[in-house]
Design a protein around this nucleic acid. Structure first.
Lengths: 338, 338
DNA sequence: CGTTTTCAAGGAACCGGTTCCACAAAGCCC
DNA sequence: GGGCTTTGTGGAACCGGTTCCTTGAAAACG
């Protein structure tokens, strides 16, 4: 393997000069720089990353800790982070943490050791578990995507508002029997704001004087599980809601599929809203609150870079935009359904 | 930050002894080892990874290059790789490569520099692009998941057989008008065996004397796109096939949804098979060929470890098992449908 | 009992870059 | 023209571990 000494020899300079020429730090004459660069090119020289990291203290690698990418939101977010990091010449070390597992502990150890990564992006790390705090304490640049924290840079959406807007959309159409379909909020797994979304739904219901109709239905928010839960919910025609506000698009799609299976026309007899604007949302004509996890990922990288440049800068708290996308899964309730 | 010198000082030994005690290489008395280990624990010492890598030449990091994890197969595979790496104490550097893009080039540079990773797992790297070859030439331990290569360790499934079995299942039920729904095989994006699956379908059709009925329908194999394509395919009742053999479950599910939309009963008037046993397969009662990408990921890591231990060992070519899972999306064709 | 092994531990070299420092040459100022 | 700053370069120290080599003591051997 060719090292910087080989480059220096070929260019006829000392290795320190070669280093300066290639990194751009310190004085080097234009002519010398040119010679060194040519030598490096000819030898296809590439600096040994460990050596460089050891000397500079920088690794050019960002650690990302997130639930495994089996859900749309996480896959999209990862993709956004990935792309942004590549653009900045940074590498991505991935830690998929499923349950409060060995992975997490390992990640924390690595982070605490403080040397493998120049920064951390923590995705939907449940605040209750205090892991975010422990990461904060390492002093490493840290961005939390999803949960808010007062001690780290954050990228969030206004989950309460998103859910409120979706619910209000249903209320405005004239619905009163609106069920909320979503995760058990106490789950101490990763969180993407289930609790806040439930709150937003409740707020909208209360504001509309529908507090007596508040009806949370618990399900894990994957399409198959929401399908099962919804099928049970919708089976009994007498107690069937006229609308479902789902915690996310996957849950909403599960509900739509369950309605289809039961022969319940959507939106004729059942309106459904989601949150996400999932890849499949358009196919199901799903009315939803759009967010862009890809953009959020890019934003997280932007915050992280800023923090890396200036550790003392005031904390950045970005609230990513959301917007209502009205499609054909919501409509005025049928008068005889009241 | 505490270094090994601090540990050595506290334990009252030389740094070389401390290193030996902690790494387990070389002679250290049991008593000394105990002292050093205690000191390390008390100081919460963790070796600086760059320094360690520089000295040993090992990074404990595996590079994974794959399409972004927005599809079930890739997400599952990544999850399997991730878990296996964690179990082996290895880190995961992720390179999501979408199109023949900057990411890929970067990945190759890093790999060629030959120092950032102890090994590479290349997922569905299209053989035509010669990228696999270039990776092979670096001499780094390399496992290809998906495409076969004679010059690297591989984890594959028998795509031809999988597709043939699915098609034969339909033929055995009595179908003759069987369309194949799948990707453009020439796409020089990432490949997961579309071409071979088309071949398997053709083989089954030819063996059954149905060569005149071979009918490939091109679509990108995502649920929404397969939905659109299938809707067009199924719209014309006269030219409608009685069965669809889909290249993967996502395409199959798109077809089922299209049939539902058009009011075509499945399996009454249309049988559908997939390949994967996707997370949603059960919900749609999809008859499919099961594979386990999670297992394949673990297998890839196993091969990689073996290669890392013995670079001279003969190449390992693992063919992961698949099996037919018969559910309710396939049935005997209605006699009047012939 | 003397000699050869084996075991333990310290000192120094090394991995491959980066950066500090010393020094020389050139440019600038009064 | 002498002193001072700016520029360009080489040598050496350094980042924090690992490993080779040496030395000394204890154990095994003939």
């Amino acid at each position: 393997m060719t090292g910087i000494i080989d480059v220096a020899l070929r260019a006829g300079v000392a290795k320190s000069t070669a280093s300066r020429a290639l990194s751009g730090n310190g004085y080097v004459s234009a002519e010398t720089r040119e010679r060194v660069e040519r030598a490096a090119r000819e030898l296809a020289y590439s600096a040994h990353s460990s050596a460089s990291s050891l000397a500079t203290g920088r690794t050019s690698t960002i650690g990302v800790i997130m639930p495994m990418a089996d859900r749309w939101y996480f896959a999209e977010l990862l993709s956004g982070i990935q792309r942004a990091l590549v653009d900045d010449g940074l590498d991505l070390g991935l830690y998929g943490a499923t349950e409060g597992s060995a992975e997490r502990a390992r990640m924390l150890d690595h982070a605490l050791a403080g040397r493998r990564f120049d920064g951390i992006i923590a995705v939907c790390l449940q605040p209750g578990a205090h892991e975010l705090e422990r990461l904060t304490e390492t002093g490493l640049p840290l961005v939390s995507v999803g949960p808010f924290s007062e001690r780290a840079d954050t990228v969030t959406i206004d989950d309460v508002a998103a859910s409120r807007v979706a619910t209000e959309h249903l209320i405005d159409l004239g619905h009163e029997d609106i069920a909320f379909l979503g995760d058990e909020p106490d789950a101490d797994r990763f969180s993407f704001g289930e609790r806040k979304r439930l709150d937003g739904y409740c707020q909208a219901m209360i504001s509309a004087g529908l507090d007596r109709r508040i009806r949370p239905v618990t399900t894990r928010s994957t399409i198959p599980e929401a399908f099962e839960t919804s099928a049970a919910l919708l089976a009994d025609k007498r107690h069937r809601p006229t609308a479902i506000a789902a915690v996310c698009d996957e849950a909403a799609i599960g509900a739509i599929l369950a309605a289809q299976r039961l022969g319940i026309p959507v939106p004729g007899e059942l309106s459904v809203t989601g949150i996400d604007d999932h890849r499949y949302a358009e196919m199901f004509a799903l009315t939803t609150i759009r967010q862009s996890p890809k953009e959020q990922g890019a934003e997280a990288v932007r915050l992280l870079r800023a923090r890396m440049q200036d550790p003392q800068a005031p904390l950045g708290h970005v609230v990513a935009p959301v917007s209502l996308v009205a499609r054909a899964s919501t409509a005025v309730p049928r008068s005889d359904a009241r």
